[in-house]
Design a protein around this nucleic acid. Structure first.
Length: 599
DNA sequence: AACGGCAGCGCC
DNA sequence: AAAGGGCGCTGCCGTT
């Protein structure tokens, strides 16, 4: 069962049931309260909702207390299909897709509206004024500030009517573009896979909106205590926290002159004056420099990072009064299909701050992490029997180390008594070899290990090698379900034939080599997330997702059950992508009160 | 004063 | 121990 949706003015809209062929089975129904109508149909039929963009449609539904199980997000799918066709970065809105279909001028995508300007009602495109002067920017933004974003959104309309689409036009566009997308998916050599990817991506859009709506539990007072302890009390405006000032003074004293530790240029000069020529002032470089300012400098770097990225201004901006952190997630924001985030650095929460992520009283956090996801994905992708059987159990790296040691013969005997079948050092080497194969590295020890990898696991090795060769030749590569890497940049072919062409060629090879694994891992994670979401019993909710890790916030009594749901979802994700495979995707799961207590 | 590139470092 | 892939965010610094 499928129902197409279009948004009208004043919270109303149009609903149109579709048959299996994607054609309407009857006339569209005009409804005065779209949220209410969708809620009723969701209860009765739980259809797949066909709509223009989850980012526009779903937040107001959530605000009205309405959740849906499934959708087809035309905008996200348009991106996937354009990429599949090698047409990266073209406008992906429904209006643009329709314009391509009808041969009319293609409007540029609207500039993203600021994250804090979320609509409280349905904003259909016809509500966007033709003249920005009609609408004062939210929050009374100063000229040249947020107002420009609003202007850009309207002005980007191109050939369409100035005010965008009315409900009837939007519905017509949704129907036409949906049918066209189905046709394009069916026409690919991955006709059975792209629809899976489309469904997973669309489900991702739903979870992303729900995660933003629900928020990650965040205890501002814990965060504050933590940074106050490390940095000293909150300083006045324009002042450094006390501990940073102490360190800065000590650094200057050790150099014998004032040095701004925030300035790489000043630091380089100061080191030069002291007789140390440093190529950069990165921490790992400075660690090797024998100068008395170094220890204070390293400590300063660590703390200043915490202060600037996650200090009190972060708390002011992001820790909401109801004890939640609500970042904006951007589904498919990374070309590999990983998510990006907008504001708050949601996908870069430092480990020390995980202390501030605490379950509500009577609730638990179920923190689940896919163990060694990318190498397992490679094993399943390549269909390498030997590699897959190494990945058929718990510790993949240990299993590989075992194989390596056998390959090495008497020269590298394994110490006895280790329970995982290989020495610690062997395991680390296996890990390095594998990461080198997937990332395109291969210096030092890794060269030799890569040779072993190639002999013992020719298909797995060959799989990433082939992806690298494709990239070096300027060709496209795809994930398991058909997500496609960008073509080389316009100047790339000239660059490659030029003087320093080899470097550019290898660089693209490393990118495509990694792409096939990273993008397939990302879609495995998407399938995991979607499956978890559909099997989660009501008050429990996914509150965080980061590449290969998911956190569910649940009433304590249901925590064990949630853990089971997650394990089952991991198996299901493997089946969805790879069918029958002996590769397993084990999850490391911790049931905790505080994120910092996981693993 | 505003903008963009870069350095540096946090996460996977 | 670092390197190899992907990001976001901040402050510095040169340019406009």
């Amino acid at each position: 069962m499928r129902v197409a949706v279009a948004v009208g003015p004043g919270g109303g809209g149009l609903l149109c049931p579709l048959g299996d062929d994607g054609m309407p089975t009857g006339p569209a129904e005009e409804v005065a309260d779209l949220a209410k109508a969708i809620a009723a149909r969701e209860r009765a039929q739980a259809p797949r909702w066909i709509w223009a963009a989850t980012t526009r449609l779903y937040p107001p539904l959530l605000a009205a207390g309405v959740r849906v199980a499934r959708c087809h997000d035309l905008e996200l799918v348009e991106s996937l299909l354009l990429a599949y066709q090698g047409r990266y970065g073209e406008p992906r809105s429904v209006r643009a897709a329709l314009a391509r279909l009808t041969g009319s001028p293609v409007p540029a995508d609207p500039v993203a509206v600021p994250a804090d300007a979320q609509p409280t009602l349905f904003d259909d495109l016809s509500d966007v004024p033709a003249d920005p002067a009609d609408t004062p920017p939210p929050g009374g933004a100063e000229p040249g500030g947020r107002g420009d974003a609003v202007r850009g959104r309207v002005g980007a309309g191109g050939g369409g009517p100035a005010g965008g689409l009315g409900a009837a036009e939007e519905l017509a566009a949704v129907l036409a573009v949906y049918r066209e997308q189905a046709r394009r998916m069916a026409a690919t050599e991955h006709a059975d896979r792209l629809p899976l990817l489309a469904a997973a991506e669309s489900a991702g859009g739903l979870v992303a909106a729900e995660m933003r709506h629900g928020g990650l539990p965040w205890r501002a007072e814990v965060h504050d205590a933590l940074i106050s302890d490390l940095l000293g009390p909150r300083p006045g405006p324009g002042m450094r926290p006390r501990k940073l000032q102490v360190l800065a003074d000590r650094i200057s004293a050790e150099f014998g002159r004032p040095v701004n530790p925030d300035s790489p240029a000043q630091l380089t000069k100061a080191f030069a004056a002291a007789g140390f020529s440093v190529p950069s002032t990165r921490a790992h470089v400075l660690r090797e420099v024998d100068h008395p300012a170094v220890p204070a400098l390293l400590e300063y770097k660590e703390l200043v990072r915490l202060w600037t990225a996650h200090g009190w201004s972060w708390l002011d901006a992001w820790a909401e009064r109801d004890g939640r952190f609500r970042p904006e997630y951007v589904v498919g924001g990374v070309v590999s299909g990983r998510w990006a985030s907008n504001g708050g650095g949601a996908l870069q929460i430092p480990k020390v701050l995980r202390r501030a992520v605490v379950a509500d009283p009577g609730w638990k956090l179920v923190v689940a992490d896919a163990a060694q996801l990318e190498p397992r994905v490679l094993a399943a992708l390549a269909g390498d029997r030997a590699f897959a059987s190494a990945a058929a159990h718990g510790d993949l790296y240990a299993a590989l180390a075992h194989v390596f040691e056998q390959a090495g013969g008497p020269r590298a005997p394994a110490p006895h008594g280790t329970q995982d079948g290989g020495s610690r050092g062997g395991r680390d080497k296996a890990k390095i070899a594998l990461l080198s194969a997937m990332y395109g590295g291969g210096t030092g020890d890794a060269v030799q290990l890569l040779g072993v990898l190639r002999q013992r696991f020719p298909q797995a090795y060959g799989y990433v090698e082939a992806a690298a060769r494709d990239g070096e030749a300027g060709r496209l590569v795809r994930s398991r379900l058909g997500r496609t890497c960008p073509p080389p940049s316009p100047g790339w072919r000239d660059l490659v034939s030029g003087e320093r062409g080899a470097a550019a060629m290898r660089s693209r090879g490393r990118f495509t080599r990694n792409f096939v694994v990273q993008a397939t891992a990302a879609e495995w994670a998407l399938a995991l997330l979607a499956t978890i979401r559909t099997h989660l019993a009501d008050p429990a909710a996914v509150v965080f997702f980061q590449h290969d890790e998911v956190i569910v916030h649940t009433p304590a009594a249901a925590a064990e059950e949630v853990a089971g749901t997650i394990r089952a979802a991991a198996e299901e994700a493997g089946r969805l992508l790879f069918g029958r495979t002996q590769v397993v995707f084990p999850m490391e799961i911790a049931i905790v009160d505080c994120y910092a207590d996981a693993k």
